[in-house]
């Protein structure tokens, strides 16, 4: 806190988080995508005149879980909401610099955000199921984007609910209201809803902060399973959670990226004093 030099972001422009070896075989070899799913250079963001993100340089590798940690108000959720341009719904939000997803410029004014959001799913802090049936919640996205016959749709809903480990609990009451589910179930339903449109990437904004420990454990379990098929970015307050679920971790403080790297290194041997203080629980 007292050392201003520590606030300077990591000067190395390529703090690339290479996938850890044990996950490498799960990455599809046929993938011709560039090595990074998300890459940002000199990324700045403002709400009105208030700058909330300063000169971020970060690469996020595909098919792994990247955790964003940092005290509240450090801009990690803002950054997440730029990746699928949810910030478009907030008046006065703007950004400069480079932010790309597989080489697509995400700050392009002409970008089709509807298509972007189909490719990048999002799970919110508080479960937000629509006041419809469980089935209709999961089928909402597929119905938007393509026309499925009823049987295809049923299959897709089942797959998505299985993928989010909810199928066994709800298979007998797909037509009952989603609002009748418990908080943890609702959040898994929201994950199923996001998975159902076949995204490449999932953004999770503190997905467990409104849940009890048992539901949290089931969501974390789910995240570990999902990383085989999706690039996942998860924002969390909870350092234990970050260390449990993420392969790579980025630490933010006051709108700046302080340090990023493989999770085990960041947590056991941080280069930066501030990171060390934070991950060891001395502040934040």
């Amino acid at each position: 806190m007292s050392q201003p030099s520590a606030l300077v972001p990591s000067m190395d422009p390529l703090t690339t988080t290479t996938p850890p070896p044990q996950r490498a075989e799960e990455t599809r070899p046929a993938s011709v995508a560039p090595p990074s799913a998300i890459s940002m250079r000199g990324f700045n963001s403002w709400y009105g005149t208030n700058q909330v993100l300063h000169a971020l340089d970060l690469e996020i590798a595909p098919r792994q879980v990247c955790g964003f940690i940092g005290p509240s108000g450090c801009g990690k959720s803002t950054l997440l909401r730029w990746i699928n341009r949810m910030n478009d719904t907030i008046p006065g939000a703007r950004a400069e610099g480079t932010l790309s997803l597989h080489g697509i410029d995400l700050l392009d004014k002409t970008l089709d955000v509807v298509d972007l959001r189909r490719r990048v799913g999002m799970v919110f802090q508080k479960p937000n199921p629509f006041p419809k049936s469980i089935f209709d919640n999961v089928a909402f996205g597929p119905r938007l984007h393509r026309v499925y016959s009823r049987t295809d749709l049923e299959e897709l809903v089942e797959q998505s609910l299985r993928a989010s480990a909810l199928w066994n609990e709800v298979k007998d009451r797909l037509d009952s209201s989603a609002l009748g589910l418990s908080g943890g179930q609702q959040q898994r339903l929201c994950i199923a809803r996001a998975v159902a449109i076949g995204p490449e990437m999932l953004l999770m904004d503190e997905p467990c902060s409104a849940l009890d420990p048992r539901s949290t454990a089931s969501i974390e379990e789910l995240i570990r399973e999902l990383r085989a098929s999706y690039t996942i970015v998860i924002v969390t307050h909870n350092m234990q959670q970050a260390s449990r679920v993420s392969d790579a971790t980025a630490f933010f403080y006051e709108g700046r990226l302080i340090e990023s790297g493989p999770t085990d290194i960041l947590f056991t041997n941080p280069k930066n004093r501030q990171t060390e203080d934070y991950v060891s629980g001395r502040f934040g």
Partner: peptide
Amino acid sequence: PQSLRDGAYALGSTKFDVSAKV
């Protein structure tokens, strides 16, 4: 609640989808 709109936008809804279906 705004969270329902956010949820629908995050699934790639247009404004029409959000208004008419959610």
